[in-house]
Design a protein around this nucleic acid. Structure first.
Ligand SMILES: [Mn+2]
Ligand SMILES: [Mn+2]
Ligand SMILES: [Zn+2]
Ligand SMILES: [Zn+2]
Lengths: 132, 132
DNA sequence: GTTCAAATGAAACATTGTTTCATTTGCTTT
DNA sequence: AAAGCAAATGAAACAATGTTTCATTTGAAC
């Protein structure tokens, strides 16, 4: 699905910032940092609008935020393939690349009594194909 | 193990701040936010020292940081029981409590070709015993 | 094209992260 | 117990990031 349709789908206005933001993510095989996206935006970048664009796209569910730790926060499109399934993330310890990978296996994670698990997030850290 | 021994173990000086920080975590069954710990510290709290205490204790491996998302970052002691095993974390969607729970199951998580997984982090979101 | 709500971007303010440096503290050696 | 020294502290200042306000511009519906 293209950027315009993604916005139309959610009933939010198509603006230059939003379209460019989505298009940049769309072209990337991996999740991107704010800095990555900002660099790609060039001229059009504005700190405040950028901040609000992220909020808008996040709450519309068009993108998702992947928080690895304090120093690594990335954004990726919420792909249709993944929409209703939890998916895993891979973090490369060398190049710090983050990729959305397959579905979370529905194994028994063995919660202690009394806990009700609803969402299972799996983050795998290791070496990516590029760095291996 | 008590706070003094934890510091002595790592060969770092025992100071009022560090001891209090560790003792506060030690008394808690769940992971705590900076704000939680700050509140418990009272008088002794200082923003800058606090910042450095976290860094020191983190890099000594005495505590670990659990990043749920942008708005939920918590700290917990690195328990001996967990030292060499990855352990899972549980996040309660209602009260936002975070708890360190059992080991990460060593199932096959099914990485795409080329990826080498080394650490597996599992974060389960749901309802805790208190809120259920 | 007109209209109106929503988005923008400048400015200002708030919060958090980090460094610098003079002073104090904890620990080792006498 | 006292001296000596490296490490820790806390005040200050600076940097980066988050957030609100408001006048202006823009997008979409009519
Ligand atoms: Mn993802
Ligand atoms: Mn833990
Ligand atoms: Zn890599
Ligand atoms: Zn709860």
């Amino acid at each position: 699905m293209n950027a315009i349709d993604r916005l139309k789908n959610k009933g939010i206005k198509k603006t230059a910032h939003r379209l460019m933001f989505i298009n940049i993510l769309q072209k990337s095989a991996v999740a991107l940092t704010e800095e990555d996206i900002k660099q790609d935006m060039g001229e059009l970048y504005d700190r405040i609008t950028f901040y609000r664009t992220i909020q808008t796209l996040l709450s519309a569910g068009i993108i998702h935020r992947i928080v690895i730790d304090n120093k690594n926060v990335k954004y990726a499109l919420s792909e249709i393939a993944f929409r209703n399934h939890q998916h895993m993330h891979f973090f490369c310890k060398i190049c710090h690349t983050v990729a959305c990978i397959g579905e979370v296996p529905s194994y028994d994670y063995g919660l202690p009594t009394g806990y009700k698990g609803e969402e299972y997030e799996v983050l795998i850290k290791g070496i990516c194909p590029n760095c291996g």
